[in-house]
Design a protein around this nucleic acid. Structure first.
Length: 603
RNA sequence: GGCCCCGUAGCUCAAUUGGAUAGAGUAUCUGACUACGGAUCAGAAGGUUGAAGGUUCGACUCCUUCCGGGGUCACCA
């Protein structure tokens, strides 16, 4: 199927042309095509500049020679023109029409998975509810996973819950002291929000104590603050397995998980496996100790363990505290090993961490440490980790019009609030337009949810993950223009047409006349879909899919305005346009699926 | 301060990874409703790609310096 694609034919034939006309051999990667700019005639353009070195002729002469050869030897090429060093090729309508006819099968024809990729994302702390930053993380995780699957990879989605540590103890202690036995049921609060309330309470009380210290803030006084002493005591109890502390910890974490699962359901988040830091940090400690005995880490006199990364241009990094307790990175080391072990059968080729860019340094360090451990055979998968490579999918922070989100200033956008707001806005807008008047209450609610979530997801995913982005609440609820609902609308509109007149079977063949320019534009975009998927998968950037699906919707809408479908002059024309519409709706739906967005049949 | 990332229309984002005259949305102005669904479409206006050099057939993209913004350098996570 793939070798039938025009780019591949042209690449092969261009090499042939150069052989034939200039008696030179070039490799496929020296041949680069791009879409022809709209202001020129043609569909595909060969860049000739790189070839002038082998042709030893001017760009124009080279282009002319190759164009001439292609027109003579490739039936799909019906015309060509040369502008400076650009060889613009016109691809005949027959090719595009044939592509459309086969498009359905070409989408389903997936090669079997060749590679296994593990994607870690979400990775919440169990001391507070999810916020806007987590939303970007989760949406990226969902989407990148879908895109990799579509690109023919086997994907294992995993979560890593940060469920232990001093910050978790803070909400526990506050609840114990001031909670009066409050529960999610008694307070009618979502569990993660309830726990978050006590986390905040601890922080406030702690600050009060701090403020009441005499001037100077001496370290000694700080260290002896009652809350500080109590919190450290609680952590020690937890680490020594004190039953009452563990019970409390389990109870409160349970509340948080109940809360998270609601948010996850709203966002469409699912995992094949969830890891808990409380279950992997001990393994991490063990590995670090082994590293010490193999001589790649150093234990200092006070008992703390360090790795020296100055040879790699970084610093020394602590791996175990002098009291033997683990730090953040220790657990990550254990988790890598645990995962490779758990999924030994799957032979993981790549392990992707979807984590914000404030942790760029952390992952640089982590990857170097893993490399050292593998090199010293501490990890039982050989020097190359059994062929697995590690990759940090680093994404930028989400800013608000008022600046950074700061919990201290109460400007953090809560995930659940935001989701509710999006759905309510979708509802108001839909009712205002009278779009849901003949739907049942349940169907209507479902629709509002679909639209609201599409707006949110698209707004966030269209931005290149690497870049810092601005979340403007007012713009995010705009459903016109380059938005999720706009694309959903285009889909629903096609479905509406198709309800009025299904595609006849057997399908009619070619349109009566040659392709209308708008028809051709749409088909060309449909033709791009597989390329967009692979490009998106290679760069881990859902933004490419988002931009593509928007272009397609826009292009289709133009076609829709220019070309009557049901009122087409001839029967063949009508059928062809129905077929084109059906194919477009499929690609719209499939593209949005890659962004974790659902489509309504009507809206 | 060291290291890392980012500066593109008023605003929010693109630009096929070094290719043609840098494109969309939004906001502003103008046009298309007896509609196959107007959550649509068409048009106008909007740019010295932060600045200056350099590399080459060709630079938003690569290199150097500077300016501006952010992140990170914990026995925190």
């Amino acid at each position: 199927m793939h070798e039938l694609r025009i780019e591949n034919i042209l690449t092969a034939k261009s090499i042939e042309a150069i052989k034939n006309r200039f008696d030179q051999s070039v490799s496929p990667n020296q041949i680069t095509f791009q879409k022809t700019k709209p202001e020129f005639e043609g569909d595909i353009t060969l860049l000739v500049f790189p070839l002038t070195k082998v042709s030893k002729k001017s760009p124009e002469q080279t282009a002319e020679a190759i164009g001439n050869y292609l027109k003579a030897n490739v039936p799909e090429v019906t015309a060509y023109n040369v502008v400076k060093g650009f060889l613009n090729l016109v691809i005949g309508d027959e090719y595009w029409i044939k592509y459309l006819e086969n498009q359905e099968s070409s989408i389903k024809n997936q090669e079997p998975a060749t590679e296994t990729v593990m994607v870690e994302f979400s990775s919440p702390n169990t001391n507070k509810p999810l916020h806007l930053g987590h939303i970007r993380n989760n949406l990226l995780g969902i989407s990148v996973s879908e895109i990799l699957k579509a690109a023919g990879k086997k994907v294992i989605r995993v979560n890593l819950v940060n469920d232990r540590g001093i910050h978790i103890c803070k909400s526990m202690l506050a609840w114990q002291k001031w909670g009066n036995g409050e529960t999610p049921e008694s307070s009618k609060m979502k569990g993660d929000h309830l726990v978050g309330k006590y986390y905040v309470m601890f922080d406030q009380e702690f600050k009060k104590q701090e403020a009441s210290l005499p001037d100077g803030h001496w370290a000694l006084e700080k260290a002896s603050m009652p809350l500080r002493v109590e919190i450290q005591e609680m952590l020690r109890k937890w680490e020594s397995g004190d039953p009452k502390t563990i019970e409390l910890w389990k109870k409160m974490n349970g509340w948080v998980y109940d809360g998270f699962s609601k948010t996850y359901k709203d966002l469409g988040v699912e995992f094949e496996k969830t890891y808990y830091e409380s279950e992997t940090y001990l393994l991490g400690k063990q590995i670090v100790e082994e590293g010490v005995s193999k001589g790649i880490f150093k234990k200092r006199d006070d008992g703390s363990v360090w790795v020296d990364l100055t040879g790699d241009g970084l610093d020394e990094k602590l791996l175990l505290r002098s009291d033997g307790t683990s730090v953040y990175i220790t657990q990550d080391i254990g988790t890598v090993m645990q995962r490779l072990e758990d999924f030994k059968e799957s032979k993981i080729n790549k392990l992707i961490y979807v984590v914000g860019n404030e942790q760029d340094y952390h992952f640089k360090v982590l990857f170097l440490i893993i490399k050292k451990l593998a090199g010293a055979k501490v990890l039982p998968f050989g020097e190359d980790l059994g062929g697995a490579s590690l990759f940090h999918l680093s994404y930028g922070m989400v800013d608000l019009p008022s600046g950074k989100m700061k919990s201290r200033e109460g400007t953090v956008v809560d995930a659940d609030d935001l989701i509710d707001e999006m759905i309510h806005t979708a509802k108001a807008k839909t009712q205002e337009l009278g779009k849901a008047d003949d739907l049942s209450a349940e169907e209507a609610e479902n629709l509002y949810r679909m639209i609201g979530m599409a707006a949110l997801k698209y707004f966030i995913l269209k931005v290149d993950p690497k870049k810092r982005m601005l979340f403007n609440p007012e713009e995010s609820i705009d459903f016109n223009g380059n938005t999720g609902p706009f694309i959903q609308y285009t889909y629903a509109r096609i479905k509406s047409v198709m309800r009025k007149s299904p595609i006849p079977s057997p399908k009619s063949q070619t349109p009566a006349n040659s392709l209308h320019p708008n028809e051709k534009s749409v088909i060309k975009l449909l033709h791009d879909f597989p390329k967009v998927i692979s490009e998106s998968a290679e760069t881990y950037n859902p933004g490419h899919v988002a931009n593509y699906v928007y272009d397609l919707a826009k292009e289709y809408n133009q076609f829709y305005h220019e070309c009557p479908i049901l009122k087409a002059e001839k029967e063949e024309e009508k059928n062809f346009r129905l077929q084109l519409s059906a194919a477009t709706s499929d690609v719209l739906k499939n593209s949005l699926k890659l962004l974790g967005i659902d489509v309504p049949e009507r809206m």
